[in-house]
């Protein structure tokens, strides 16, 4: 089993993600350079957080034109596992591997804090070790995490059970207060219809070691490893 962490110019959670996969979970992990045309036979591609291309036009908008993204798209179309975290999620939206778009957080400020997520669907490669309704504590760090999608699509993704994580209170209650960035339907994580591409704004790699204040993010990596094994 092999993981690949993509580096775009401006990626800044690439090493963090690599460290967790390689050193915390002891998995074979390699970096994938955005100018390349090969995924080097990885089993799971991770698009890490950061500010790819400075996020200058629109978060994730330029990264989608990287040569490597063509490969990632084909890989995803064939059912390969793709996890997009934060900026990686934004890139997946731009690539249209996932529906919807991100707008500025509702308070118009960058937000870096721990949030609680309620796990909505555990029948996925990314959450199969969790129980439905589990609440996990994971940090967010973004300016554009206010998820938006047109009502018809929202209806479809709800029907398809594509919503994986929702911002909640620590007890799992869904509230406006817990929905810190103002996302539609409290959506924090979303999967594609094929069930192999997950995008999430919170950073599981920042919640995989006790010293960082939470180990709740491990469930996502454990699920992927379990799935691929």
């Amino acid at each position: 089993m092999k993981f690949g962490v993509v580096i775009f110019p401006g990626s800044n959670c690439d090493y963090d993600t690599y460290f967790v996969l390689k050193d915390v979970f002891d998995q074979e992990t390699t970096f994938l350079w955005h100018k390349e045309h090969s995924l080097h036979d990885v089993d799971c591609v991770v698009l890490p957080g950061g500010f790819s291309y400075g996020d200058y036009l629109r978060s994730g908008a330029i990264a989608k034109f990287s040569p490597l993204m063509q490969e990632v798209k084909e890989f995803a179309d064939k059912g390969g596992l793709v996890l997009g975290i934060c900026n990686g999620f934004q890139v997946l939206l731009e690539l249209e591997l996932l529906p919807g778009a991100m707008t500025r957080n509702k308070n118009l400020k960058f937000l870096c804090q721990h949030v609680h997520l309620r796990t909505e669907n555990t029948h996925t490669p990314f959450t199969n070790r969790a129980r439905k309704g589990d609440v996990i504590k994971i940090p967010i760090a973004h300016f554009d995490g206010n998820y938006f999608v047109e009502p018809e699509t929202l209806h479809t993704i709800k029907q398809n059970d594509q919503i994986i994580f929702r911002y909640s209170e620590p007890n799992g209650h869904l509230s406006e207060r817990a929905n810190v960035n103002g996302s539609m339907h409290n959506i924090a994580g979303l999967i594609n219809t094929g069930g192999n591409v997950l995008g999430m704004m919170p950073h599981p790699e920042r919640a995989s070691e006790a010293i960082l204040g939470s180990k709740d993010g491990r469930i996502i990596f454990e699920s992927i490893i379990h799935w691929l094994r």
């Binding site: 963090d16 967790v20 960058f110 870096c112 760090a141 920042r206 070691e209």
Partner: peptide, 12 residues
């Protein structure tokens, strides 16, 4: 909370 104070995952 406007600062990303956790990136690089060393913030103990």
């Amino acid at each position: 909370r406007q600062y990303d104070h956790m990136v690089q995952t060393n913030t103990a």
